[in-house]
Simulated assay, not measured.
Amino acid sequence: MRVKNIKLVKARKDKGLTQENLADKLNVKKSTISNWENGYSSPQVAQAIKVAMLLNTEVSFLFSSEVQDFHTDE
């Protein structure tokens, strides 16, 4: 299931960066940033560290998985 990474979007916007600005700083395509933010993919560890450093936050804050409760009828 795809979960939008709202923390990444907010951290990027708080720094005044567009997806394109962040992509340029990381030497990746804008579509890569979009995919991370929209939950289609996640960065490799080295990229996640760079993102966190650029956005002045922690990797675990930006890329921690959302914990969800699933209820099943059994």
Rank of each mutant, 00 (worst) to 15 (best):
S34C: 06
Q44Y: 05
S42H: 07
R12T: 03
V67L: 14
L22N: 13
S41I: 04
V45I: 15
E20H: 07
N35C: 03
K50L: 11
S41L: 08
R12P: 05
L54F: 06
G16H: 07
N38D: 09
V9E: 14
F61C: 04
T72Q: 09
A48W: 00
K15R: 15
N56W: 00
V28K: 11
D73H: 11
D24I: 10
D14P: 03
L22M: 05
M53Q: 15
E74K: 15
K29I: 03
Q19S: 07
E37V: 07
R2G: 00
E74A: 14
K13E: 15
A48H: 00
N35K: 15
E66W: 02
K13A: 11
V3W: 07
A46E: 15
D24W: 00
L26Y: 06
W36Y: 15
T57A: 02
S34F: 06
K15Q: 12
K13Y: 07
H71D: 11
V45C: 01
F61G: 02
L26S: 05
V67I: 15
V67A: 14
A11R: 04
T32P: 04
G16N: 07
Q47R: 11
N5G: 03
F70E: 12
Q47T: 13
M53A: 15
S42G: 07
T18V: 12
F63Y: 06
L17N: 04
L26F: 08
N35M: 08
D73Y: 04
S60V: 13
E74M: 06
M53H: 07
K50Y: 00
E66F: 04
K7L: 12
L17D: 02
K10N: 14
I33D: 06
V9D: 09
S34T: 12
S42W: 03
R12M: 08
D24S: 08
V67P: 00
L8G: 07
S60R: 09
E20I: 07
V67W: 00
S34Q: 08
K4S: 10
P43E: 02
D14Y: 05
G39V: 02
G39E: 09
K30I: 04
S42C: 10
V67C: 09
Y40V: 10
N38E: 10
